[in-house]
Design a protein around this nucleic acid. Structure first.
Lengths: 226, 226, 226, 226
DNA sequence: AATGAATGAGTTTTCATTCAT
DNA sequence: CATGAATGAAAACTCATTCAT
């Protein structure tokens, strides 16, 4: 749960927070525009409003900036999501619908940021990855919990595994609106997209059988190994 | 349909083919391992088995290598997919199931490559992007056509838009096995994954209502604009 | 009249001046020795007394160095010339003689630099050429003005065109001492050269007829076109 | 008098001649267009109509091509000049006028080539320079001889040194039409240029005093050493 | 003799990082 | 704390030259 520490030479915690905010805001814009590798530290510093020397008072390496940025993006997505969920104590299928719709809208509002993360996570410092992936899972977990409650209150019937699977599906189909926007935008408006996916994600899920004992495809090996 | 041309100084077409094969094979490994930006042209040359000078006899810029690699990956995924589909003349829901299962297995066999593409497309030379995205759509289209035939033969009932949407879902849920493997692998085996998603993608789709006239979520704007 | 700007990353104008001085001094020596193309940027940096990284803080491209060098050389030649001329208010033929002699001595003192310019102007960045050529003309103009005044005060009689022509001749015959030194040095000392050319340039000019109405050579076309 | 040898792997002298002709013709065009250093050997080969391998059958280094080109240009200028002069047995001032006019026209017809030589001689292989400079002097010598004969037949009166000096002046003022064409072209047509320079070179020379015993400028040292 | 694929040393340029002021 | 000049390792790319066919 603890955050990964990023070393700063400066002591004043309040100042650290302020400078990092500037830095992250500047960097996000640049990463969206040209990606992490094509963005220089000088550009980040300038866009943050201070000098390159100052930048390095608050981070140790360029990768630290990326970590800070990713961290921030997750926090924002999550925060917005949470804001909605917190009001609800228990969950009905309709609450899930609301949550999904809201989540999709959040993704729409942070398309660029979501995209950055999809493309740059691999450049994170090795030790930062777990922290970021954990946040990812926490968000999936939100949907998982909602699904569980819907199963509990009998509105829908899904196995343990199906719940896990489906929470990932909900999460990914939200992200999808961002990372496949080059095509989806041509086909649907956001409202249409929400409506269509809602059908598949909620109504469709009702039609799923809980226990498929025999899966005939598991034996299927008619694809050459490579 | 025409391929984007990559300039080569060498004339002999057969040689170009051979050298580019070497180059692509070497590069994929490196891109998987460290990403496009962290891979140097010298490494690519060495890993391909020839000198840096020779590398540049067959391409003009480093980005050309990336294009060649992406192009190749798509071709391979597609080729494997096609091999299966070509045998079938018409499509039943069961054929669709077969196709999905096979597709998921192909993705599993090319996880690394699929991942590379998700992360590096943005680094493609600007004029190469359309070529690559077209290939992507061609693959989505395979599923779209299968869905259409299933609708035609009455096994399932989906609107035009739902078909479009769902073909993307099928495609993305296959890719998902690659780009979220860090988590999915912990939860499911490939077989389990196939089985679970099949439920949602096929059985679930049966439960979808064709015409949702009124979508109550479309008006929902309870998410702050930013 | 404005100088062509050469971009520097460094802000401190005083420092820019200082570093560029070092750079130019180092570069001139190298250009004289081996020409622009055979001189590497690393050599320029080293010879200037700083690192390659620092060099590029003060210029954008290697060609910028050449422009800076050419610009400097002209400024120096001109400055020295001006210093002499400024003392004189009106011009007699004798002042012209003084000016020519002085100019020839300046060229002698900057032989290498003059040579560099003759050989490397063509390598200047395209947009820099006009600036350099303008400076060249300004120097020719100095002699033109002196000639005009000598004509005005009746010491010599030349047409408008003859003045233009002759100012170029004076200028070029000065440069000639630099760019044909490989031979002229064998034949004459600088003093002899000055004395001899003075005869042709000043006494000779007296014997020129102002209006040659008919030029019999203009019709002469006994040289095959190619 | 012997030419500098350029090594060829090929034996057949007739073939060597042919191939080198092709090579020189191709190279001149390229050197005029982009200079020696910016022209690649591959370009030379292509423009000559054969392969890079073949090029190196007839030369040893790129610099050899430059030597060959310079050599050829001098030969051509000279040849054209000679063609005219050979017809005359003795020389009158009028013959000199004819020769000068013709020479200027030759230069005009070979402007580009003359320019190339001015800019690229310094890149010649060290041991080739003497050969090229000798040719240069031979051409100056033509005018020297003509001047001498004019002095002999009493039409003009010049000292030994003045003759030497003036032959260089004639030669350089011809070249000047090429290397200062960027400005001279704006001022004069070729015919005007010839007419004007003729005045200075021939009529002017008549006004020159043969023996200036005392040169007051020789002592003049009012230019700071540097 | 002719070809052109292969080579790799050498070139320009960039940029993360440091450190003296 | 803030600055920004200095650094140099490392990167992409070029091109004269060789040599097997």
């Amino acid at each position: 749960m603890k955050k990964r520490e990023v070393h700063a030479s400066v002591k004043d915690e309040r100042l650290i927070q302020k400078r990092r905010d500037q830095m992250i805001n500047g960097a996000v814009k640049l990463f969206i525009e040209k990606g992490f590798h094509r963005t220089t530290t000088r550009e980040i510093a300038r866009s943050a409003g201070f000098s390159i020397g100052t930048l390095y008072e608050y981070i140790r390496t360029k990768e630290d900036v990326l970590y800070l940025v990713c961290d921030r993006i997750y926090d924002q997505v999550r925060e917005r999501l949470q804001k909605i969920l917190d009001t609800k104590q228990q969950t009905t299928l309709d609450d899930l619908r609301q949550a999904i719709a809201n989540y999709f809208r959040v993704v729409d509002g942070m398309q660029d940021e979501v995209l950055v993360m999809y493309q740059e996570v691999k450049s994170l410092p090795k030790d930062a990855l777990p922290y970021v992936l954990r946040k990812e899972l926490e968000m999936v977990d939100i949907f998982k919990q909602m699904l569980e409650r819907c199963v509990e209150n009998g509105e829908i019937s899904l196995s343990e595994n199906q719940i896990k699977m489906h929470s990932h599906n909900i999460y990914v189909q939200g992200q999808m609106w961002a990372f496949r926007r080059w095509e989806l935008r041509k086909l649907f408006t956001l409202d249409e997209y929400i409506e269509l996916q809602m059908e598949f994600l909620v109504e469709g899920a009702k039609g799923v059988k809980e226990n498929t004992k025999e899966c005939i495809y598991c034996e299927t090996r008619n694809v050459p190994a490579n």
